[in-house]
Design a protein around this nucleic acid. Sequence first.
DNA 1: AAGTCTTGCAACCGCGGGCTA
DNA 2: TTAGCCCGCGGTTGCAAGACT
Length: 445
Amino acid sequence: MGRHSCCYKQKLRKGLWSPEEDEKLIKHITKYGHGCWSSVPKLAGLQRCGKSCRLRWINYLRPDLKRGTFSQEEENLIIELHAVLGNRWSQIAAQLPGRTDNEIKNLWNSSIKKKLRQRGIDPNTHKPLSEVENNNEEKASANSKNNEKTSEGSSELSFVDADNSNTLGLAAEKPKPTSSVVLDRYSLLENSAGSTNLGNSSTHEFFLNRFHDQTSSSSCNKPSDLTGFLSFQQMNYGPNIGLSMNPNTTLFFNSNSKTTEMISDHFSTSNITSTLLPSTSILSAPARVKPSINFPSDNPFSVKFENWDSCTVSNNGRSTGNVSSASADQLQTNCSFFEANAFPWTASDCGKAEKEAHIPSSDSEIPEDIKWNEYLQTPFLLGNSGHNPGVQEMYGETKSEAQFAAEGSLSNWHHQNQQQQSLQAAEIYGKHFQRLPAATFGQFS
DNA sequence: AAGTCTTGCAACCGCGGGCTA
DNA sequence: TTAGCCCGCGGTTGCAAGACT
């Protein structure tokens, strides 16, 4: 595999980004799109490698980022998603509009892990620590036994051991609805934090609907009559068989049920809040690097970040609003300078980016798999959707002329992102399901 | 007030996969 | 088929700021 050529180049800046660098990168991307990342630094006049530019943009400068502390709902969702997806931060991030994989990863490592441990939950397996310790002890003793046996020359036994260590455990380990138990515990976490309880709009339903719709609507390799309960632990045959689950997580689904219910009394009684409530985030100042942004003079809109607590949106010098630090969403909706800037990716990006950024002009252009995924996405991606009632409410009647004018470009941005997320979701849930061989399903019927 | 420890998070690094010539 | 390029991901590091002694 070839490595990124920039890795070998000398005299490239590393470390924290200066406001000037941010400004250059933002200017460049708002004007031309990123195209090929490797060419961005050169075109933008930056002494950075493309990779670094990409990272800075994705993790910090991107317009749709929701900065600030994570809400309790978001944390709970991350925990639930982690129970299902493991350390697949990008996939987890795809379900949290405005959050980056890096941010989530950091949160997990710095905060959530500790919280879970404090509450007696193993953050890796999402099982009670006591249970995990017992398992470890059991495994340790089993290993020592197997080692004794393998030392006698039995290669077969070592193979079995390897299987167990991968938690394949089809015969050895009885599948348990771990996640259901864990989720119940998480609901306690949430309750203890005094969060709202939205009952039905749970992640379980979200996943179930996704999984269900995926299996029922996807035309590729779908089992025509998927009956019985699916144990994901059983499906998780190994690293290359894609359900992408934490190997210790078991979910049960009743695919026959009209409502796609999770087969667990824990789920039926637990009160999990998983809906993202964008209003809960608070814009917090980044500790170190504060971008100071000045847009090109030919740009009809400009935003000056005097500090992170307030900014001014102006249209040709005419101020259209001064926004104080109310909430991140208000900032994003009322103040985001990105709203005021068209993102002409498609115009100047290189071929590949053009393809990626292509926005179908009509429904007929949208491939089926994207369409149905949009349906799946819609209720979940509140913060990222134009249908978000919260956002609409925020716009209210006080929406300014400039905001109306700017909306088009932002909605493009969101549209693009939604599609990307839809595609990602399709990839995550679809690919994995589609990969499951018929024989695998057969085992559950 | 000064030194040390802890925490949070931005950024880097290395790797794997997809694409293309 | 292979090699090179590029992108994206996940793990890790380094550092600034805050907390603590």
